[in-house]
Computed example of a mutant assay.
Amino acid sequence: MTHTHVTLNNGVTMPALGLGVYQSPPEETTDAVAAALRTGYRHIDTAAAYFNEREVGEGIRKSGVDRAEIFIETKIWMSDYGYDQTLHGFDKSTRKLGVDQIDLILLHQPLAAEFDKTIAAYKALESLLADGRVRAIGVSNQTPAELAQLISRTDVVPAVNQIQVHPYYSQPEWRAANAEHGILTQSWSPIGGSYIYGDFDKNPLEDPAIAAIAEKHGKTSAQVILRWHLDHGWSAIPKSVKPHRIAENFDIFDFALAPDEIAAIDALDTGVRGGPDPDSLNLDNYGFAIPE
């Protein structure tokens, strides 16, 4: 029932639920990370492009939890793609986090328009893996076609593809491609907070079907949604800086959804993305320097 951990395709074990810090203000990130670790989280997800890696490191140290117990995940931004540039990006991240080894490092965007740079960046991650400076490597926001191309041109199959997944946008084709290659699906915006986009402002937290399941289990809608991710075997990284929400999101290991409940949530998929298509992100419109 608990599904507290997942095993990656290289044998590394990772806590299934982590704290995300996307858009967490740096001045609030340290306390949020410390609160999460004291609550019981052992997985923190950040990124160079979030500009809060330093505060994540401070929160880890402030928590009093031993580094060896914590799974740290970060991402290289596409401005640092290219073999040497990615190695330097890794060095920037480790300095800010205050660690020598990162547990999981991802390429943040596919950079579809210059995919050769993505390949070079991934080969740099492979070298970091071979040197023991990272424990697992992966990608984020890569389409099935991009995954197939990357796998054909590199040596190590990604352990993770972090993509947007929540009840209203569950990306079954992308998840199927991940599964075909033995790649774990990790869900960003797992509760659906990023879905308020453009003219589409539906919120999974307010969905009657999810609310009914939550009432049956004596849980909140957010807890039911996170349980849905774990019961599917995915990883989820909900974001919050509020201690009570951080604790609420972690309180999902004492129940499981029935198959018909999982199917009912699966049926809510709209096929409508919240946010821009990752392939539209390129160095002209999203390239920015990652500071030292």
Rank of each mutant, 00 (worst) to 15 (best):
N9H: 08
H229I: 06
L97E: 11
Q164S: 13
L19K: 09
D45Q: 09
H108A: 06
Q171W: 02
H5N: 15
R133P: 06
K75Q: 07
G138V: 05
K62Q: 15
G82T: 08
P167K: 09
K242V: 14
D269Y: 00
T94Q: 06
I290M: 11
G138L: 04
Q85W: 00
Y81G: 03
N203C: 05
G218M: 09
H244G: 00
I163S: 04
E248K: 07
N52A: 08
R67E: 12
E69P: 08
Q171H: 07
I246R: 08
L125D: 05
A136M: 02
A148D: 15
N141G: 04
A179Q: 15
A112M: 13
S189D: 12
Y22K: 04
V165L: 14
D284G: 04
D279A: 11
V156A: 03
N249F: 11
E146V: 00
S140A: 08
I225K: 11
I60Q: 06
V12L: 15
R175Q: 14
E126A: 03
L19W: 11
A211N: 08
I70N: 06
L17W: 10
G192K: 11
D266Q: 01
V12W: 05
I60V: 15
S127R: 14
T154S: 12
M1W: 10
A267M: 00
H3A: 13
K239N: 06
F51G: 01
D251M: 02
E146R: 06
L257Q: 01
V33T: 05
F255P: 05
I191D: 07
P291V: 06
A34S: 15
Q109R: 15
M78P: 09
E261H: 03
A176Q: 15
R42W: 04
H232L: 12
I76Y: 02
D116T: 10
L8I: 13
T30G: 00
Y41W: 02
H166E: 12
Y50C: 07
E114N: 14
E73Q: 14
A145R: 04
H232K: 15
Q149C: 02
D207C: 00
G18K: 04
K62W: 07
R67Y: 13
A16N: 08
